[in-house]
């Protein structure tokens, strides 16, 4: 279902590897072309969002990334997915190193290997459900296999809504379209940045089940950021991030174990913030864990 029946080159056993990845905001080229005063001001006080993260994820694994707000989860995901470039360090996806380059080069790298699901869906409002799903193939100049796209949409439970526009769907349905769109290119790694963050409990569960099924049944590799211990418990393992560093790992997580670990992580971070680091403007140093799902 999630697979296209095209000939697949063999997969690398290691889907994702990060070596000493650092990301410093407010420095280098980005600061130079900063135009807005807010960004110029940020150039003054640099933020180390990722501080030497190394990790290795095998193909077919389902990993959740957790950590306090501002700990660098989104930054980690974007660097690993080629949406942003690390300040230093190495990112290897499916055996291919992501080497820095123009946006065009990064885009071409991503097209071959990466699917991304966002909290805010990011479906194109003028396109129908089916058109949204086939768009990545068109953009990549690949053959558009309509049947395959329809099959993926059927698999996510939207076979009846092919001609709908995003505005005519609920949030949960839109996120399922986004997942179908990410899967249709048959990516080596599927990333999700709080994919259930904007959904109610029931829709979130459907989305998480879909992701788990993609991993279990079809060997898809999934990396998902979440704030929700229950969502994290769908994964095979949880990586904890604090202050831009890996701060622990939990295998075969349960929601309770995750929540407990997060509470301690919050304590540690509150007690001893690393010098020169901010906890991010998005929230307080620590946001209460969402209950539910």
């Amino acid at each position: 279902m999630f697979r296209q029946h095209e000939e697949q080159p063999a997969r690398h056993p290691e889907a994702l590897r990060l070596v000493s990845v650092r990301k410093v905001y407010g420095s280098g080229a980005r600061a130079a072309d900063a135009q807005q005063s807010t960004r110029a001001a940020q150039a003054e006080n640099q933020v180390t969002a990722l501080d030497g993260v190394s990790l290795s994820l095998p193909a077919g694994s389902f990993t959740a990334v957790m950590g306090p707000s501002g700990s660098g989860k989104s930054t980690l995901l974007q660097c690993a997915a080629g949406l942003d470039q690390p300040s230093s360090g190495v990112v290897v996806v499916d055996g291919a190193e992501l080497v820095g380059g123009s946006e065009t080069e990064l885009t071409k790298f991503r097209r071959q290997r990466i699917g991304f699901v966002f909290q805010q869906f990011n479906l194109l409002p003028t396109l129908t459900v089916l058109q949204n799903v086939t768009l990545p193939l068109r953009l990549a100049g690949r053959r558009v296999d309509r049947q395959a796209a329809v099959r993926v949409l059927e698999e996510v439970g939207l076979g009846e809504r092919l001609g709908y526009r995003p505005a005519e769907l609920s949030g949960g349905q839109q996120q399922r379209v986004a997942i179908a769109r990410a899967l249709v290119t048959n990516p080596r790694v599927l990333f999700g940045d709080e994919p259930t963050g904007a959904l109610d409990t029931r829709s979130a569960r459907i989305v998480l089940d879909l992701l788990r099924r993609a991993v279990r049944d079809y060997g898809q590799t999934v990396v998902m950021v979440t704030h929700d211990p229950v969502a994290a418990s769908y994964a095979d393992s949880v990586l904890f991030l604090a202050d831009g560093r890996l701060a622990g790992r939990l295998e075969r997580p349960t929601a309770e174990a995750v929540a407990e670990r997060m509470a301690h992580l919050g304590d540690e971070v509150l007690a001893a913030p690393a010098p020169g680091q901010s906890y991010g403007g998005s929230g307080g140093p620590w946001q209460p864990v969402n209950q539910g799902v």
Partner: peptide
């Protein structure tokens, strides 16, 4: 924003 969404789905700046 629409352009940003296209880029995220795999459109190059040239496209």
């Amino acid at each position: 924003r629409e352009f940003g969404q296209q880029r995220l789905v795999g459109a190059t700046p040239g496209q």
